[in-house]
Computed example of a mutant assay.
Amino acid sequence: MGFLAVALLVALTPGANNLLALRHAMVRGFGASMVGVCGRLVAFAVLVVAVVAGLGPLLSASEWALTAIRWAGVVYLAYLGSTILWASFRRRGEPEGTAAEASAPERPPLAALVRKEFLVAITNPKAVLVFTAFVPQFVVHGHGSVTGQLAVLGAFYLVAEAAAAGVFAAAGSVIRAVRLSYRAHRRMDRATGGVLLGMAGLLAAESA
């Protein structure tokens, strides 16, 4: 339970995936956002399997692998941020009014939400370090199989990640319920795109 509490605090840290959960809930609602979160959980499950299989320490110790993952994350975050910003500026001429205020400007398919969450998670070098450096610290040697403990801890972290994503998705659904105008949606999309580009820049600076 101590690990779960700490994992929840780590998972609640604002990041690209949680920002996506927030935005997806604003655009398509809480349920659709949580479907998208499944992509994130699949990516993290892959990392858990790698750690359980003994590949985690090799991955975290490989400067080349972490650099490749980091730059893949930079490229994808920059792509997402620029795409969201471009779409927001393209919508400048759309009419205002009660009909426009009733829904978000775009309704991307569920598969796109899942894909975005997965790609952001799997190309996040900090996620790699969470599973290769943070989680193993809670293994108690002499109390059963290390592999089994890693699998259980990884499963608990996935639960914590899902709960944290639910918090951000709930916040997004509340914003959605306010029925913002297109102008407000554009402003929020521009802020989201700007934050994602900023994250890409910070990640690139770490790679320099």
Rank of each mutant, 00 (worst) to 15 (best):
M1E: 02
G2A: 05
A7M: 03
L8D: 00
A11I: 07
P14E: 05
P14G: 05
N17Q: 08
N17G: 10
L19W: 01
L20K: 01
L22A: 07
H24T: 02
G29M: 09
F30P: 05
G31L: 12
M34Q: 14
V35I: 15
L41R: 06
F44V: 11
V46G: 06
L47P: 01
V52I: 11
A53I: 07
G54D: 07
W64F: 08
W64R: 09
R70T: 15
W71C: 05
G73N: 08
V74K: 06
V75I: 15
L80F: 11
G81W: 08
I84S: 04
L85M: 13
W86L: 12
S88Y: 04
S88L: 03
R91F: 03
G93D: 13
G93Y: 11
G93L: 11
G97N: 13
G97T: 13
E101Y: 06
P109N: 13
L110S: 14
A111F: 12
A112N: 10
E117R: 05
F118W: 07
F118A: 13
V120Y: 04
V120R: 03
P125E: 09
L129K: 09
L129M: 15
V130C: 08
A133T: 14
F134N: 03
F138N: 06
V140Q: 13
V140W: 06
G142W: 06
H143M: 12
G144D: 09
G144L: 10
S145G: 12
L150T: 10
V152A: 15
L153G: 06
G154S: 07
A155S: 12
A155F: 12
F156E: 13
Y157V: 03
A160N: 03
E161K: 00
E161P: 00
A162G: 01
A164K: 04
A165I: 00
A165H: 01
G166T: 04
F168W: 14
F168E: 00
A169W: 02
A169C: 02
A171Q: 00
S173M: 05
V174F: 09
V174Q: 05
I175W: 05
V178Q: 07
V178M: 11
V178I: 11
Y182E: 01
R186W: 00
R187W: 12
A191F: 06
T192C: 08
L196I: 01
L197S: 04
G198Q: 04
G198H: 04
G201V: 10
L203M: 13
L203D: 01
A205D: 02
A205V: 05
A205W: 12
A208S: 06
A208K: 00
